[in-house]
């Protein structure tokens, strides 16, 4: 029989849990950036520089048009809107196998809510993606004009993308605590995932090969939704929203199951 430790009154109140998550997410940012305006400017300047590079490369060096008759600067916006979502998800997943196994000092801490180790980096990634969105907004204003009101829904999509990433990361972190080599396997799979996601080319190109690619890829839906919100200024089709909700539900479900599987032995494993 497996032993148990229970604390009658030491359960973590939800409020404190999130306060702690936010405090830990804050640890992700270098001290110089925290809590001052320069940090915010720096956070927006980096994606802006990226965006400037993209628009220079893809309008001057290799002019790319997705649709005939489209302006070349629009490709940079297309690429960038996909990258906003991709960066958020890939950032979390790339680190996920080591989230538990690499933070022994927290896992070994008394009554530390271990799930925070996944939630905190997810929140941090979400924070990081917001300046990217702001940078996109500025670029859109400059290159195309006032963005559509649907732009306001974009942070919500990022939040849902974060949930998908969190589910996957929770599962990978749990597996990573048992199988240490997972950390070496994940990066190549991620770069594969990059090319089967509608980031460099529109979803239509991928569905020419097969719709199943878009359907099986859990991050395709949020990227496509982002495209429609930011570029087309239109509400996304319902089936995409359903696909994203399903991806979030499944990834969190499977991730939680894996986590519950290893939770009891985590302290011994780490």
């Amino acid at each position: 029989m497996q032993g148990s430790v229970k604390n009658v009154s030491n359960s973590y109140a939800a409020k404190r849990y999130f306060q702690l998550a936010i405090a830990l997410a804050g640890q992700e940012f270098p001290g110089a950036y925290r809590g001052n305006l320069t940090g915010v400017f720096a956070a927006i300047a980096v994606p802006l520089a990226m965006l400037a590079t993209y628009s220079f490369v893809f309008s001057t060096l290799i002019p790319v048009r997705i649709r005939p008759g489209q302006s070349t600067s629009e490709y940079a916006l297309f690429l960038f809107s996909g990258l906003v979502v991709w960066n958020l998800i890939a950032d979390v997943i790339a680190r996920s196998p080591r989230l538990f196994s690499g933070s022994g000092h927290y896992v070994q801490r008394a009554h530390f809510p271990i799930s925070l180790l996944v939630l905190a980096p997810c929140l941090a990634s979400f924070y990081r993606s917001l300046p990217w969105l702001a940078a996109y907004c500025l670029a859109h204003l400059w290159l195309v004009g006032t963005p559509s009101w649907t732009f306001l829904a974009a942070p919500l999509v990022l939040l849902l993308a974060m949930l998908i990433a969190m589910g996957i990361a929770l599962g990978l972190a749990s597996l990573g605590a048992v199988v240490r080599d997972l950390a070496d396997v994940v990066p190549p799979i991620l770069s594969l995932a990059f090319f089967v996601s509608p980031i460099l080319y529109p979803a239509a190109r991928l569905s020419e090969i097969g719709d199943w690619i878009l359907f099986l890829n859990p991050i395709a839906a949020p990227i496509r939704i982002m495209h429609s919100l930011l570029l087309e200024g239109a509400l996304p089709p319902v089936d995409l929203l359903g696909q994203m909700a399903l991806a979030a539900f499944l990834s969190i479900g499977i991730g939680t199951l894996l986590y519950l599987g290893v939770r009891d032995s985590l302290q011994d494993l780490v």
């Binding site: 032993g3 430790v5 009658v8 302290q267």
Partner: peptide, 12 residues
Amino acid sequence: GVLRPTEGSITL
């Protein structure tokens, strides 16, 4: 709660 008991229970 840093280590999990192999057997038995603790109530705090």
